[in-house]
Simulated scan of single mutants.
Amino acid sequence: MSATEPKPFRTTDGTAWDAQVLEGQDRGHYMQSDAWARTREESPWRGLRDVVPVPAEGRELPIQLFERTAPLAGRIIFLPRVSGITPAAVDAITARAKAYPKRWFGLKMETFQAETPELVEAFERNGWVPAASSQYQHAVAVDLTGTLDEVAARFKKRARNSYRAAENKFGVTVTKVEMTPENEAEMHRLIGETKVRSGGYFRHPEYFQRIWDVYKTVGQGHFYVAHYEGEVQSMAFVIRFGDTAWYKDAGSIRENAKIFAPYLMQWKIMQDLHEQGVTLYELANIPDPASWETSDIKGLYTFKTAWAPEPVRYMPTYELPLTGRYALWAKAGRWLRAVYTRRTGDAWF
Rank of each mutant, 00 (worst) to 15 (best):
F208M: 10
K248Q: 15
F208Y: 13
P205H: 03
E255D: 15
F208P: 04
W212E: 03
H227D: 12
Y228H: 15
E193C: 00
P205L: 07
H204V: 02
Y247Q: 01
R240N: 11
T244E: 12
Q233N: 09
V196K: 14
V196R: 09
R240W: 00
G230M: 10
S234P: 00
S252D: 11
I269F: 08
R203Y: 05
M265R: 08
A250C: 10
E186F: 06
E206F: 03
E231G: 02
S252M: 10
M265W: 02
M235Y: 07
Y247V: 06
K258I: 07
V196G: 03
W212K: 04
A261T: 07
E206Q: 14
W246K: 02
F202W: 11
V225F: 02
A257K: 14
M235Q: 11
W212R: 08
I259N: 06
F237S: 03
R240F: 00
H222V: 07
R240V: 13
I239M: 02
I269T: 04
N256M: 09
R240L: 01
K258T: 10
T217Y: 03
W246A: 07
Q266E: 10
K268V: 09
R254F: 13
K268S: 02
Y215G: 08
W267S: 04
E255H: 12
Y215Q: 13
Y207P: 03
T217L: 14
E206N: 12
V238R: 00
Q266C: 10
H222F: 05
R254A: 15
M187N: 04
Y263L: 11
F241E: 07
T244F: 04
A257H: 13
Y228A: 06
G221I: 07
V225Y: 01
R210V: 13
P262F: 03
S198V: 05
H204L: 12
T217W: 01
I259T: 14
D243E: 13
I191L: 10
Y201A: 10
V238Q: 04
Y247E: 02
K248T: 14
R203V: 08
H188P: 00
I253E: 09
S198N: 10
E231I: 11
H222Q: 10
V238G: 01
Q266K: 09
G251Q: 02
G199D: 06
A250K: 00
A245G: 03
L273A: 01
A257G: 11
K195T: 15
G219N: 05
S198R: 14
M265S: 06
Y207A: 12
K258Q: 11
A236E: 06
